[in-house]
Amino acid sequence: NITNLCPFDEVFNATRFASVYAWNRKRISNCVADYSVLYNLAPFFTFKCYGVSPTKLNDLCFTNVYADSFVIRGDEVRQIAPGQTGNIADYNYKLPDDFTGCVIAWNSNKLDSKVSGNYNYLYRLFRKSNLKPFERDISTEIYQAGNKPCNGVAGFNCYFPLRSYSFRPTYGVGHQPYRVVVLSFELLHAPATVCGPKKST
């Protein structure tokens, strides 16, 4: 009989979030998941669920729940959905087409922007091929755009693959930082360890 609440607040209220290319994953298990708490945590810009209804979450049980978190800019949030393409979905964080879970995003301009520009958040701009779903690539190998090998040196047709967002508070919403948490629900042929409040007794 599990009584402890799932530590969603640790994920959502973390002081620092990860850069999207090096997104963070927390496995959540053996706890009571009260998803209604999430609705009250922040004024969400996005709370979209796929393959599951957000209002039914509190009635369900899962084997595992994974919470992935990272920062992107406002106009990239739409890429965090099944079947999307674009720089983020292709080279940084890719959801599977049959994704079961929820994408939660909110504006973090007050936390993640600086007047002089916050350069701490990076994204991958160049990659030889698209990522597979939930693949994480943290390599910093020089990207070869031409025929000549780069031998690890940046220059003509040889690019450092990561680029930094420079978040400034005066930017338009599309270029402001957004914190994203992706909850993916895993149903294996194994005992369910993460249940809503109704199912945990």
Rank of each mutant, 00 (worst) to 15 (best):
Q144N: 15
R27G: 08
V153E: 13
D90F: 09
L95M: 09
D98L: 08
V32A: 08
N40S: 14
K199I: 13
N147Q: 07
E10C: 08
T100M: 14
Y91G: 05
V153L: 14
L131D: 00
S69C: 05
L38H: 05
Y39T: 14
C150K: 02
R73H: 00
L183K: 00
I80Y: 01
E141H: 11
G155F: 04
T3K: 13
D59L: 08
F160S: 11
A89Q: 03
Y123C: 08
T55V: 12
P7R: 13
I80G: 00
P191C: 09
D98T: 11
K26Q: 12
S69A: 07
F134W: 13
T85Y: 09
K56M: 12
L125T: 06
L38E: 04
Y21C: 04
N130M: 12
V11G: 05
R124Q: 00
S113Y: 02
G83I: 05
W106G: 05
S53K: 13
T3L: 10
I88H: 01
F44G: 15
E76G: 03
R127I: 01
V115S: 10
S29D: 09
A81V: 06
Q144G: 07
Y143T: 02
G83K: 13
F185T: 07
L57N: 08
E135G: 09
V103I: 09
P82T: 04
A18S: 12
N107H: 01
V181A: 05
V181F: 04
S108M: 03
E186I: 07
R16P: 10
F17G: 04
D97G: 11
T85R: 15
Y143V: 04
A145L: 04
V32R: 12
R27S: 10
E10Q: 12
L5A: 14
N157C: 01
R136E: 03
V182P: 00
N4M: 10
N64S: 13
K199H: 14
H189K: 15
L5F: 13
R127F: 01
G101N: 01
S19H: 04
P54V: 14
K56C: 08
S53C: 07
N58P: 15
C31R: 06
A89C: 06
L187G: 14
P191F: 09
Y35I: 13
Y21R: 02
F160K: 15
E76N: 03
Y93G: 00
V65F: 12
Y171T: 02
S53Y: 09
S108V: 04
D68T: 04
C158K: 02
T201H: 14
S53H: 14
V65R: 10
Y21F: 12
K26E: 08
L187E: 11
A67Y: 06
S36F: 07
